[in-house]
């Protein structure tokens, strides 16, 4: 039993955290957008383009000059991160322009963005690197390395607490820790700042916000800039912070949709978003570790674990377990009254 706890459970939890981080960042990205009243089913596309930009620019920045690189050494990874944030934010602004300024259909815009990202990343990747849409394998300095927290080595042998500290808490890269900080930050912004209050209001009743003399357009654009930045982080994590060490085509593999599911599951709340994405990360970890899951009375195939987040979301959406009530003005373009 002790072995199970220390080995299996800790290892599972450790990979759950790793799996959860891109989901968490994308989920929080969606939270800003949807809380401001803009549906965003384009999280997947923004993450994908960010993952590509991160992989491509980190690779180019770290390449030797005779290969056309910039020889930036350890700075490369930060160039990659910056490129990811810029690329994702540009996509977010296309969505903003379509949804806010042109009052177009937000769902259709999201669909288009997902496809555009899926196509353009491979086209440009192939044009730049000729590797079938992949980016070159990233080396040291071009990717985020695990950080060993203080005392992790010396506490390693302390039973339980040491194990947890060494295996689960220490040894992740900077984006992981940053992700958890952003949860707290988002909570604070949303519930303790004027911007957060206004943003929540604009998602529920933009007319009231407008009457108070605050610009609905400006608020919504600001929210979508944050969405772009966070999706950028999520995408950068995939290519710079995981074992993949580079971009591969369609590498988001539906994570944008799981993040969307987590957002609904979490009822558009930041702390719950963390819980939901950790849960979904754990499901993914279990699905990866066990081909089939024998529960004694029933044997579940691995694909069931893969589908579980989606099934749970449908159940939550159906309101059989709690009720998920989205921001009221979501999806509706705001037309100023005259």
């Amino acid at each position: 039993m002790m072995d199970f706890l220390t080995n299996d459970l800790l290892l599972l939890s450790d990979s759950a955290v790793r799996n959860a981080i891109p989901l968490l960042l994308a989920c929080l990205a969606g939270l800003y957008s949807e809380r401001a009243g803009i549906f965003d089913i384009g999280l997947e596309g923004k993450m994908l383009v960010a993952a590509f930009a991160a992989g491509a620019f980190s690779a180019i920045a770290g390449m030797p000059a005779y290969d056309g690189g910039w020889e930036m050494g350890a700075w490369s990874v930060w160039i990659g991160l910056g490129a990811a944030i810029i690329a994702s934010t540009i996509f977010s602004m296309i969505h903003a322009f379509a949804s806010i300024t042109l009052r177009g259909n937000q769902l259709i815009s999201g669909v288009a963005i997902n496809f555009f990202a899926a196509g353009i990343t491979v086209l440009i990747g192939q044009h730049w690197f000729r590797m079938g849409g992949q980016t070159p394998q990233l080396r040291e300095g071009q990717r985020f390395e695990p950080i060993s927290l203080p005392f992790a080595e010396s506490l390693k042998d302390v039973p339980i607490v040491g194990d947890i500290y060494y295996q689960l808490i220490s040894g992740h890269n900077i984006i992981v820790y940053f992700g958890f900080i952003i949860v707290a930050l988002t909570w604070w912004v949303l519930y303790r700042t004027r911007f957060g209050l206004r943003m929540r209001a604009v998602g529920e009743n933009p007319g009231a916000v407008d009457t108070a003399g605050i610009s609905v357009v400006k608020l919504r654009y600001s929210a979508l800039i944050i969405t772009g930045i966070l999706c950028g982080l999520a995408g950068a994590y995939l290519s710079l912070g995981t074992a993949a060490a580079g971009f591969g085509k369609d590498m988001t593999a539906g994570r944008g949709f799981i993040a969307l599911a987590a957002l609904i599951f979490a009822k558009w709340k930041p702390i719950s978003a963390m819980g939901a994405t950790l849960l979904f990360g754990m499901l993914e970890a279990i699905g990866n570790k066990y081909q089939t899951l024998d529960l004694g009375f029933v044997v579940l195939p691995g694909q069931f674990m893969q589908a579980l987040p989606y099934i749970l979301t449908v159940v939550i959406l159906a309101g059989f377990v709690g009720k998920a009530i989205p921001p009221k003005a979501g999806g509706e373009p705001y037309v100023k009254e005259r």
């Binding site: 296309i94 042109l102 259709i108 997902n114 496809f115 555009f116 899926a118 196509g119 353009i120 086209l123």
Partner: peptide
């Protein structure tokens, strides 16, 4: 030697311009 994703891009642009960005022309 152009990847088949070229079509995905064209498809995305058609969805974008005839769908969400239609007002660019309509207005």
């Amino acid at each position: 030697g152009i990847p088949a994703q070229m079509i995905t891009v064209i498809q995305a642009l058609i969805i974008m311009f005839t769908g969400s960005l239609e007002n660019l022309v309509r207005m």
